[in-house]
Design a binder for these strands. Structure first.
Lengths: 340, 340
DNA sequence: CTGAAAGCGCTAACAC
DNA sequence: GTGTTAGCGCTTTCAG
């Protein structure tokens, strides 16, 4: 592990000259520079970022924080994975590494800010956090911790956020379904995730409001957990007194589980009901019928989070609120209201 | 950002006492300890890991290195995502954070070891690297860089690895297909990825050898890239003179693309051909027919990589070679050989 | 143009 | 039991 001192010895200069060469600053005679650069190459010297960080106060690392990223490692990660892709891509472009910080504890016990306090990262991107405890929000504000939240709108003036315009998409979905003759709507959610997952919460709320404005109601079918969507939500649907013909699902994976469950009871889509999801994940393209859905520019959102965070680290103080549109992805899961 | 000194001032002791309390070592009078602990809580003091790392020489962070993790951010990440899940879970359990390090450059230009050289991490887990340039292997060996490779078998005595027993699964698949009467086999690969992706390479090689031992041949159908599998491999298959009835696909996502492509030409599975994949990803369960596949214990492999790496960091010097079995996941994509 | 000194926050070794 | 000194590798004054 070569240090600046080793390089300096080899090049016959003092270590401070090495520092200048490495950081491209100060006046260094070209030939001195050349000698130093050669020594750097020979010794495969890399600046020790721990030491740089200790000195300069920043690490060029950003933290991606989520309390539940991997609690279903094999299933519902299309969403977070795509965001992570965007974060990682833009970070790499700009020379920043990404540290992943997760936790499996109950919400309250999860210290979202740990890696920042430890000075492992300079700023934080929160994903899928649901509610941030007020105490931690206060701390973010009082200490000026650079935080950008993905996929939720945070009231605190200290926290910037990036979100999608879910309500627009929900309105679009309802228009399409109404045009097909549907009048009985249900929202497919997950109990544990609905108060946890801001996307589900926003979509459900938007559906209720938009339908109410049209004089229509919204039944809510919530499985106890995302994982049970294929088992429980179909049962709940079948047990209901009146059966909605138009289903808006919190996301695609819940929708696909639901469709599979109903198929086992002989209910087919779009013959017996229509359904639309969110995320436009690849599984929905493979399913028969294909699942109508709303694609979110997740990679672009991850990239925007990095840009926003680095602006903040660069000195920008204003809160940033940025929304992205969703795009309808047609599918065979939408059809005319069944006669009955 | 409170430091040990701040805590010390508040508790009326010297900073070294704070250090002792934080690290639970040395003799500290219980009441002194209590006062210090209170000051720590009041000031929300966290040890600065940069400084600790500089001093102790380690960071309690490990690097997950892949040169191509996100170059198809939206599609073929079930595999890497699951490995990452295992790495992250086990790391968290043991108090280690995970730094993601990727690159989009051509292989040769990618400096796999950068984050280690920079002392941002203590050890590295490589995923999906294909070939590691000999020069970097030499450096790993000569500098004793702690590296564990996931999903490939590295000859270098300096590098431990974790892999699956692909050949066993290929043999099992061939047995099943032969039992169904199939005699004409093809391997579905990806040109760009075959010499890149050790899994594809191993599976193709195993298929060739096992079939040769039975006196059977293997046609190879390789799309130019993973992304083109749904466009190009069906064309290549249809253009071939004799059509294999038994297809072994490098992984599930290529298989699903292939099936969709052939369906457009009126060829149906399992009526016209049988196909088996690898990874057992959720999309294959959703597809009709369901895709027979081989599940890999990816999360467990990621966990094993962390354990192996930490053993190494703890002083273990022996190279570790560990293999995991694959498990057959039945599917409707296997059927008797078509009469023709 | 180059070097010497100080200090980032922390821990290890050695006093008292 | 507690404090002092030195130093991890680097950058930032300030000198020469």
């Amino acid at each position: 592990m070569a240090t600046q001192k080793d390089v300096a010895d080899r090049a016959g200069v003092s270590f401070i000259t090495v520092s200048r060469v490495v950081n491209h600053l100060g006046n260094v005679k070209p030939e001195t520079r050349a000698r130093v650069e050669e020594a750097i190459r020979e010794l495969r010297y890399y600046p020790n970022r721990q030491a740089q960080a200790l000195n300069q106060g920043f690490t060029r690392t950003l933290g991606l924080v989520t309390p539940r990223m991997f609690d279903r490692p094999l299933f519902d990660n299309f969403y977070v994975m795509s965001l992570l892709s965007g974060v990682e891509m833009r970070g790499r472009e700009l020379g920043w590494d990404v540290l992943i910080s997760t936790d499996y504890d109950r919400r309250g016990a999860f210290d979202f800010l740990r890696v920042w306090h430890q000075r492992k990262v300079d700023g934080l991107i929160f994903v899928g956090l649901g509610e941030i405890p007020p105490q931690q929000l206060d701390e973010i504000a009082s200490k000026g911790i650079p935080v950008v939240v993905l996929s939720d709108r945070i009231a605190s003036p200290a926290v910037s956020w990036i979100d999608t315009r879910s309500a627009e998409a929900v309105a679009d979905a309802i228009d399409r379904l109404v045009a097909l003759g549907h009048r009985e709507f249900a929202f497919l959610g997950v109990t544990a995730d609905t108060d946890y997952n801001p996307n589900f919460r926003d979509r459900q709320r938007a559906a209720r409001e938009i339908l109410a404005a049209k004089g229509l109601g919204l039944e809510v079918i919530s499985a106890p957990a995302m994982f049970d969507a294929g088992e429980e939500t179909p049962k709940l649907y079948l047990a209901g007194s009146r059966k909605a013909t138009a289903i808006i699902s919190g996301n695609d994976s819940v929708a696909l589980g639901f469709m599979a469950g109903l198929a086992r009871s002989g209910l087919e889509c779009p013959r017996d009901y229509s359904i639309v999801g969110f995320d436009a994940e690849p599984s929905g393209r493979i399913h028969r019928p294909t699942l109508a859905s709303y694609a979110q520019p997740l990679v672009a959102m991850g990239q925007a989070a990095v840009t926003t965070l680095l602006d903040r680290l660069g000195g920008a103080r204003e809160k940033v609120e940025r929304t992205f549109p969703l795009e309808f992805v047609p599918g065979g899961s939408l059809g005319p209201v069944p006669r009955r």
